[in-house]
Design a binder for these strands. Sequence first.
RNA 1: CGGGGUGUAGCUCAGCCUGGCAGAGCGCUUCGUUCGGGACGAAGAGGCCCCCAGUUCAAAUCUGGGCACCCCGACCA
Length: 567
Amino acid sequence: MRMSRLLLKTLREPPADAELASHRLLLRAGLVMPLAAGLYCFTPLGWRTLRRIENIIREEMDRSGAQEIHLPALHPIELWEQSGRAEAMGQTLFRLADRKERGFALGPTHEEAVSFLAARSIQSYRDLPVTLYQIQTKFRDEARPRGGLIRLREFIMKDAYSFDAGWDALDESYQLAFDAYVRIFARAGVPVVPVAADSGAIGGKDSQEFVFLSETGEDEVLLCPGCGYAANAEKAEFRAPPPLPGDAAPMEKVPTPGQKTIAELANFLGLERRQTCKAVFYRADGRPVFVAIRGDLEVNETKLKNVLKAREVEALDDAAARAAGLIPGSAGPVGLTGIEVVADSSVTGAGGLVAGANEDGYHYLNVSYGRDWNAGVVAGIALARAGDACLQCGAELETRRGIEMGHVFKLGTVYAESMGVTYLDESGQRQPVVMGCYGIGLERMLAAAIEANHDENGIIWPPEVAPYDVHIVALNLDQAPVAEALAALEAALAEAGLSALIDDRDESAGIKFKDADLLGMPVRVTVSPRALEKGGVELRARRTGETTIVRIEEMPGAARQVATRPR
RNA sequence: CGGGGUGUAGCUCAGCCUGGCAGAGCGCUUCGUUCGGGACGAAGAGGCCCCCAGUUCAAAUCUGGGCACCCCGACCA
């Protein structure tokens, strides 16, 4: 490709409001152009890299035995009503109507659509297992698109769905998908860690996210340096700091005027936070819930939601809590009636805690679970934090932020049941198919490939996703020897199957070199009178900056070697 | 949805407080010089000052309303 004809406009300065390195570089290198919040145009160069990512995914999915299909992006709304997700997706679902006012939705994901296809294609255990995938545009009316290509309203996702005759068989399909993901991210130059994830209200069994660690990420993950345990914050399990030995003495009511927060209360009484029982109020699918947890811990709302089997939980503010008959600041589980009580296991195992007396300005000392109060539900619903002990090995957990690149999930039979995906087993019994789903966001991968591979001068493409293998800078092209050398170089590279972007523009050398660094092809080759005098053309590795003079006929081999050199 | 910020040339921004000719740098066009790290000179083109209403002799500037974009949070199969 000749740059003189390429639709490309690089920017010396990025738009001021781009903050992420990938966002800035995508714009500066002219790979994308914003159309509206969460919507981007791809230029030829940007699209080429996205296509290369797509091809890596396609190759590895095919290698794993998955079969590519295509499903509509436009779905009759009935499809979503059948699974119950028309409501569950809420405002995230883009809705529209056709000319006859029939309701439609733009697919935010494709479990329903693929189930429709599978239900009509799978009849017998002999048809199983099968894994289908597609690479398709998804639409989500996100509350807040952000970070350039990180969170979009329209984006391309590879989504795969496995269908098996039972949970054991699903384990195998899941493992195949998992292994394919490991290869995909490695080839694309995106370092990821698989972390255990919450499988949510949908049920299901295992769920893992492939997370690209980045301080700018939206997700928090906990990592154990001791045993390698990794989980996102919603899912992470841990061993809470042990309680202090409790006092077996009977409860005693004490005045605690003005002590509203756990920190104030502990300070006032000269105790540690973990000697207190904190009251937190939620609304779960409309009904108020009282949560008791040790004062040094926080509630993990995802765990709470799962324990309550609720679709949604939200914290109550003080006014709403008072309306529900609670006394913020002095609320406690003792003697509480008329409200559902959930106790974290941190308060049921500890004796002698301080808890609110449900009377403004008073608390009880020496409150013990079982003796003084009981809860309807007892469960581990505390949020893991940095420094907490790993449940498996006891080492201190670390927290990192990250961006979810891919997700593998043992769905189970939820969609099979609602969408009627069944098969007849060997004994002629109708059984629901056991499903798994596996997604990867393509634009996100592109952004992460840049986040993980750039320097102050621009992008450093991982070889397999670079839009071109070689960036040729031609200087003094009006001189016959340069033009001849360029032609010979082009032919040699083409012969070897290497793609090349050729800067034949009438620009100064400085501009061309700056653009070559910004655009980030793994190998830069300068064809110039100066290099020819030295007996060849100049090869420069983008990542290391090493330069050497190479004879043209040796260029393809040398370029390939540099481009594929491990980091 | 809550909080904060920003909307002026393709990009980065000044001008707004204190109303009075629409500005700079970069980019773009033409000519000349230059030609290995974003060169130099000269001449040009380019504007719905986000939108609507109001105040005023006069609004980019003041007032009200709206919209868009960015950041933080909530949300995120």
